[in-house]
Structure formats: structure tokens, C-alpha cells
Amino acid sequence: MSLLSEFLKAASRVLDEAYAGTDKSFPHPGAFFLMSLALYFTSAVLNSPVLWIASGLYSITWGIVLRPRLKPLLSITSITLLLALVPGIPILFTGFDALKYPVSVESRAQVFAFFVARVALSPMPLIVSLTGFGWASISASLRGSRVVSRYVSKVDFFLLNTKYLTVVFADYLAARESRVVSRARSTLWRALALTIADIIGKFTVVSRDLVKAYESRCVENC
């Protein structure tokens, strides 16, 4: 199996999730998403354990109602947990977290728990919202508002850019893999590394062209 085939399969799965939508209409996808976003920012910024718990309970409750897609939910939750646990481990040993908590904290385990809760629980409402409705449905329901639609367009554009870059990356990868003739793994991995470096290097150029194409046909609310 070639690297290209593997990449296309993986990219297809990721893009399918990114562009997925549902026909659920209750609660209103746009309103629910904005509420989730507000709760996420509030609980992350205000640094209150009460709000983290509220985020957790909110997510569990609405998770039961919305029945989000399990695979992306688990994937994203695992990533946020990892993002919480990895920097949290030193805190478990030192008891030092740069933030001051509004409640008194007695032990290192408590500091660690607060840190993990802040990082892992705060974004849960947003994760449930995205995996429950899918960005496509949220975007469609938010476009009704002139104020919000400008920001929604930017997210849509970002996703479009990602799709375009995926296609470009696939082409680049194919071109390199087609000229790897030796079985030496190092050659293949070097080709892959070069491809990634190429894409990063050309990201600006590719994105700029895409932005021009987008803006040239952007006449209202974008």
C-alpha cells in the first residue's frame, strides 16, 4: 500500500468529519453552538471550578440529547485530555500552576485536578456541539445573522483551505513517491519530510492565491 493511498484514506476520514452535518433542528444548531462557545470561553477565562463542573454537566446532558458522533467525540476528547495531562504531570510533582485559583488549594493533587479540569472540561460544550450537529449544519444555521455570518464565512474558508491543501499535498506526495525506487525506508521518509516542508513553505503562496480567488467573488457578508 502506498503512502498516497494511506494519506487519502486518512484525509477522507478527517474531511468527512469536518464537513459533516445533520438534519437535527432542536435545539437550534447555531444558537446552541454560540451558547457552547460562550460557556467554553467563560469557564476557561474565569478560572472557576464551578464553571468547569457546569461545562461537564452541560456536555453530558446535551450529549445524551444530541447523541454526537462517537468516533470524533472520543478522538477530540482524547486530544484535549492529552493536552491537559502532559503539561499537568509536572504540576503533580511541583504543585505549581501559574494561575491562582479562586478557592484555596491544599495539595498538589488538587492543583493537578484543577488544571486538568480547566483544560479538559472547558472545551467539552464546544466539542459536543460540533460533533452533535456538525459544522456544516451550524454554519448553515448561523448564516441567517449578518453579524455572525462574516465570522462563519472565515471558518468556512479555513476549512476550504484545508480541503484544498489536502488535495495539493496528495499531489505532492504522489509526485515524490513515484520517484522513490529503493526499498530504503530512509528514502521514503525523507521524501515525505520534504513534502511536508514543501507544503509549509508553499502554504503562504497557496493560501494567498486561494484568498484572491475567494475575495474576487466575495460580494456580500464575507
Binding site: M1, S2, V168, D171, Y172, A174, A175, R176, S178, R179, V180, V181, S182, R183, L188, L194, T195, D198
Partner: peptide, 24 residues
């Protein structure tokens, strides 16, 4: 063919439509 890869590519040359993609 798949059983002969990647060595078989020694005998197969592929030119892409867009040279920007190929030249790295």
C-alpha cells in the same frame, strides 16, 4: 505490480501534469 514496489518504479516513469508538484 504491488508486489514489486518500490523497485518496479525504477522501470516506470510518471510525469505529472503540473510540474510545480513534481519539482522539489
Amino acid at each position: 505490480l504491488k508486489k514489486q514496489l518500490p523497485e518496479a518504479r525504477r522501470h516506470i516513469g510518471l510525469l505529472f501534469q503540473n510540474p510545480e508538484v513534481m519539482l522539489f
